[in-house]
Design a protein around this nucleic acid. Structure first.
Length: 489
RNA sequence: CGGGGCGUAGCGCAGCCCGGUUAGCGCGUCUGCUUUGGGAGCAGAAGGCCGCAGGUUCGAAUCCUGCCGCCCCGACCA
């Protein structure tokens, strides 16, 4: 018997851990705060990578790779950046180990102390901009549109599988431009790609917005973000795209000669999404039975379970294989499970793992020309004809994708609550959760005060927000528009 | 860094208070047979530095001391 998954209403955090574990997505590693991403989890990441990478390349980006180690001195060059990351950097100080005198283990060899410490990258702006300096001389060298797929390390105090681990996988784009306008355009273009990816592939509705000064990336002039809402009413920053201005160009002295023969600092962007998206995916769609995956990102879209009887095992398996091949030929990701496990065991297993469609084929179906089709999103099942099965599956996959998005969006929309008074603000935050759409006077003081008092932060200033004069519910000062508050992961 | 929990078979746990046969149980694993439409049944089998190091004792999973590690909840953060 598999372990029981804790019900969401009883303990959401425990439920999340149970799903990750039972769906075999990841597990804790021997190292605190790090995880082993298991094949099921990594397959999800690979699918995310495939689609994102395609979109990056379609918009002119190329991939490259920069080192995991960054000279300590690089980190200190951009003041805000240092302040943002100094507290969570892993530092390499020695280059070799030696066996302890009492043979009880190993220790750093004092003779191998590095001349300059190396930082394990928490992000790569510094080493990339140091490199860009040598690549950029003229306006003809611009733009540079580079992305890299990599791991990064941030020494976090508190971790959660996928949502925050000390080492995580991500992509980080780093672009260099001749003008601020072009860099901002790039920043927004990437934000659109992220939003499209989240909504179209992950069926995870997101709100595009801009971070406040206190929430933005260390070293950025402006941070754009996509914010999603999890089932427990907490917000999740799902991706960020930064307009870095000339901060890194100045810190690393990256200048180019423009068309009027004058030296100018380069304009920069950086942007990233990480394995955190997997956490967001889980907390957007999954239920008390386990993982629920949208078809467009599911490593396996359809699983076929043959139900062999005593006398018809061969015939059932043969038909199941034929059906599997038909689906494969139609470009559907399908797995035939003809293992020794019993059907009931398989039903549960694939349900926990979130496979969108399960097909079960038994003796009855052979006779009737039918097959049992079960939808993971609705937990429904019905007998359908084997005729036109490919089309039926395609239609059903599309319906599942749409249903998951609609469901998540309806929930999310219902969880955006406009409030105008401080009493309402507190009431909604505690009783309902979700996003609170409220006026803000634009000061970091009020923002900090609200965070201090309620743990709610300004998730973003939504891009599609109408300007609307009003009053900040906390400070009573005038406000030019509403922003989204929430408690967040 | 504070608060809580845990460390015994691959996984989940009991045993510990109150020291004493050969350290148990469930799941999983292996073999065989019967099965197969929602986590199968029977029979047999394998599998343990009881987190580590000291100490008390005739005797320690159990008592004492120290250490290590992990998880969860909070303060910082993609």
């Amino acid at each position: 018997m598999a372990d029981v998954i804790t019900k969401r209403e009883n303990d959401y955090s425990q439920w999340y851990q149970d799903v990750v574990k039972n769906a075999k997505l990841a597990e804790h590693s021997p190292v605190r705060g790090c995880m082993v991403i298991r094949p099921n989890g990594f397959a999800l990441w690979e699918n995310m990578k495939t689609e994102l990478d395609r979109m990056f390349k379609e918009t002119g980006h190329v991939n490259a790779y920069f080192p995991i180690f960054i000279p300590e001195s690089f980190l200190s060059k951009e003041a805000d950046h240092v302040e943002g990351f100094a507290k969570e950097c892993a530092i390499v100080t020695h280059s070799r180990l030696r066996v302890k005198e009492d043979k009880s283990g190993v220790e750093p060899d004092p003779d191998s102390k590095l001349e300059e410490n190396l930082i394990v990258r928490p992000t790569s702006e510094t080493i990339i901009w140091d490199t860009y300096r040598s690549w950029i001389q003229s306006w003809r060298d611009l733009p540079i549109l580079i992305n890299q797929w990599a791991n990064v390390v941030r020494w976090e105090m508190r971790t959660r599988l996928f949502l925050r681990t000390m080492e995580f996988l991500w992509q980080e784009g780093h672009t260099a431009h001749a003008t601020a306008e072009e860099a901002i355009e790039e920043t927004e273009k990437i934000l659109d790609i992220y939003a499209h990816f989240a909504e179209y592939f992950m069926a995870m509705p997101v709100i595009k917005g801009i971070k406040t000064e206190s929430e933005k990336f260390a070293g950025a002039d402006k941070t754009y973000c996509i914010e999603a809402l999890m089932q427990d009413g907490k917000a999740l920053q799902a991706g960020t795209s930064h307009f870095l201005g000339q901060n890194f160009a100045k810190a690393f002295n990256v200048q180019f000669q423009n068309k009027s023969n004058a030296l100018e600092y380069v304009w920069a962007t950086s942007w990233g999404v990480s394995t955190r998206l997997i956490g967001g995916l889980i907390m957007t769609h999954s239920d008390d039975q386990g993982l629920v995956l949208p078809p467009r990102i599911a490593p396996t879209q359809v699983v076929v379970v043959p139900i062999a009887g005593k006398d018809n095992a061969a015939a059932v398996l043969e038909r199941a294989k034929a059906i599997t091949n038909d689906l494969k030929a139609a470009g559907i990701s399908v797995k035939l499970d003809d293992s020794d496990q019993r059907p009931g065991w398989k039903f549960n297993e694939y349900e926990v793992q979130g496979v969108p469609i399960r097909l079960a084929l038994g003796g009855r179906d052979l006779q009737n020309g039918t097959i049992e089709l079960a939808r993971r999103d609705l937990r429904s099942k019905e007998a359908v004809s084997q005729e036109n099965l490919v089309q039926t599956i395609k239609d059903t996959l599309a319906a599942i994708q749409q249903n998951l998005f609609d469901r998540a969006q309806a929930y999310r929309d219902n969880m955006i609550t406009p409030v105008d008074t401080w009493e309402e603000f507190l009431g909604v935050l505690d009783a309902k959760g979700g996003f609170i759409l409220a006026h803000w006077d634009g000061t970091a003081e009020t923002e900090a005060l609200i965070k201090e008092e309620t743990k709610a932060t300004i998730r973003c200033i939504p891009l599609d927000q109408q300007s609307e004069a009003g009053t900040d519910p906390r400070s009573g000062k005038p406000s030019a528009g509403r922003v989204l508050f929430a408690r967040a992961y």
